[in-house]
C-alpha cells in the first residue's frame, strides 16, 4: 500500500523534474519528445535528452545506491549512525580526486584545473575509494568482530581525510576551488555515455544487496543465531561490503560525495514501514531514496532557475527536518537500543 503510493509519488515528482529548468518547455512537448516525436524547437531536444533526463536518472540512481548502501551498513554494524561513507569510501574518493586536482597542480603551475565530471576525475575517485575499501576489506578478513571493523573503517577514513587536508593546504587557489566544488556533489555532470556505465554498475551492486536480504534478516538476531540458522557469515559480510563499495563508490565517483541521504533514508524507511524485514526495507529505500534525491535536485535549482545550489547542502537541509520530525513523532530512534 505504502509502496504503491510512493511509486506513484515518485513518478509524479520525476515528471515534474523533467519540466523544471531554466528553459520553459511545455509538458505536452516533453511528453511528445519522450514518446519519440519531434518538436518545433531543436534545442529542447538537446535540453531534455542531454541534460534533464540524464540528471533525473542520475538522481534516481544516486538516491537508490546511497540509501541501500546506508541500509546495509546500518544493519551490518547495528549502528544507526552508520552510512555508506562510514568505511571511508568518500574519503578515499576525495583522496583520489585531490591527488589528481591538487597534487598535479602543485607539481606544475601550467596545469588547467580539471572540471568536475571529467573522466579522469571519475577514474581517480573510483580508484581512491576502491583502494580504501580494499584496505578495509583486507582488514575485515582478519577482524571477526563487526564493531572492530567499523572502528577500523572510521580510523582509516580519518587518516585518508588528513592526507586530503595536507594536499589542500599546499595547493593553488584555483585548483582548490574546483576541488571544493567537487566535494559539494553534483548530479548534473553525468553525461549520457557515462550513464551507460553507471547504470549497469549500480545494477550489479543492487543485485548483490538483493541476494543478501534474507541473510540480513537473520543478522537481526545477532551473529551466533544467524550462523545457527545457516547463514554463511563470511560470505554474507563480503557481499555487503562489496555491494556497498560498488554502490557508494560509483555514485561518489560520478557525483562527488553526496551526504546525508545514505544515513537518513534508511531511518525514514524504517520509521515509515515499521518493519524489520529487509525485503520491505530494501524496496522502501529504493523508492524513498530516489524520491528524496529528485526533490533535493528540484530544490537545488528552484530559487532563480539560473543558479544551481550544491546538492550536498540541499540533501541535508531537506533531509534533516524530515528525520527530526519522524523522531519526534515516534519518540526517538529505536533501532538497536
Amino acid at each position: 500500500m505504502l509502496l504503491a503510493g510512493l511509486s506513484v509519488l515518485l513518478l509524479l515528482v520525476a515528471a515534474w523534474s523533467l519540466t523544471t529548468g531554466s528553459v520553459d518547455i511545455p509538458v505536452s512537448d516533453i511528453l511528445g519528445m519522450l514518446s519519440g516525436s519531434d518538436t518545433q524547437v531543436a534545442s529542447w531536444q538537446t535540453i531534455l535528452f542531454e541534460f534533464r533526463l540524464p540528471k533525473l536518472l542520475t538522481a534516481i540512481i544516486a538516491g537508490m545506491a546511497l540509501s541501500v548502501s546506508g541500509l546495509q551498513m546500518q544493519s551490518l554494524f547495528r549502528n544507526p549512525l552508520a552510512g555508506p561513507y562510514v568505511l571511508g569510501i568518500s574519503s578515499g574518493a576525495s583522496l583520489g580526486v585531490a591527488i589528481l586536482m591538487l597534487g598535479f597542480s602543485f607539481l606544475s603551475d601550467s596545469m588547467v584545473p580539471l572540471t568536475p565530471g571529467s573522466s579522469s576525475i571519475i577514474f581517480a575517485a573510483w580508484l581512491g575509494s576502491g583502494l580504501v575499501l580494499l584496505l578495509v576489506f583486507l582488514t575485515s578478513l582478519r577482524v571477526k568482530n563487526n564493531i572492530t571493523l567499523l572502528i577500523l573503517g572510521v580510523l582509516i577514513g580519518s587518516a585518508v581525510s588528513s592526507l586530503v587536508t595536507i594536499l589542500q593546504y599546499f595547493s593553488h587557489e584555483s585548483s582548490l576551488k574546483s576541488f571544493v566544488i567537487w566535494t559539494m556533489g553534483s548530479l548534473g555532470n553525468v553525461s549520457r555515455e557515462q550513464l551507460s556505465w553507471l547504470i549497469p554498475v549500480t545494477g550489479v551492486g543492487l543485485v548483490l544487496a538483493f541476494l543478501n536480504l534474507k541473510a540480513m534478516d537473520a543478522w537481526n538476531l545477532g551473529e551466533s543465531h544467524a550462523k545457527s540458522l545457516g547463514v554463511n557469515l563470511k560470505r554474507s559480510r563480503i557481499m555487503i561490503l562489496l555491494s556497498t563499495s560498488i554502490l557508494a563508490g560509483s555514485v561518489t565517483a560520478f557525483c562527488g560525495p553526496i551526504g546525508f541521504i545514505g544515513i537518513a533514508v534508511p531511518h525514514i524507511t524504517r520509521i515509515s514501514f515499521q518493519t524489520a524485514s529487509h525485503r520491505v526495507l530494501f524496496a522502501g529505500n529504493l523508492l524513498i531514496g530516489s524520491l528524496l534525491m529528485i526533490i533535493s535536485d528540484l530544490l537545488a535549482q528552484a530559487p532563480g532557475g539560473d543558479i544551481i545550489l550544491p546538492i550536498n547542502s540541499i540533501t541535508a537541509l531537506i533531509g534533516i527536518p524530515v528525520v527530526i520530525y519522524l523522531i519526534f513523532v515516534n519518540q526517538g530512534i529505536k533501532v538497536w537500543k
Binding site: 538476531l221 545477532g222 543465531h225 540458522l229 545457516g230 554463511n232 524489520a276 538497536w336
Partner: peptide, 19 residues
C-alpha cells in the same frame, strides 16, 4: 552450516535487540 541448521537449533544468551 545451511545443512546443520536443519538438524541443530541454537538459542544463545545474546539478548536480541531489534525493533
Amino acid at each position: 552450516s545451511s545443512e546443520i541448521a536443519k538438524e541443530i537449533a541454537y538459542v544463545s544468551t545474546d539478548w536480541i535487540q531489534v525493533n
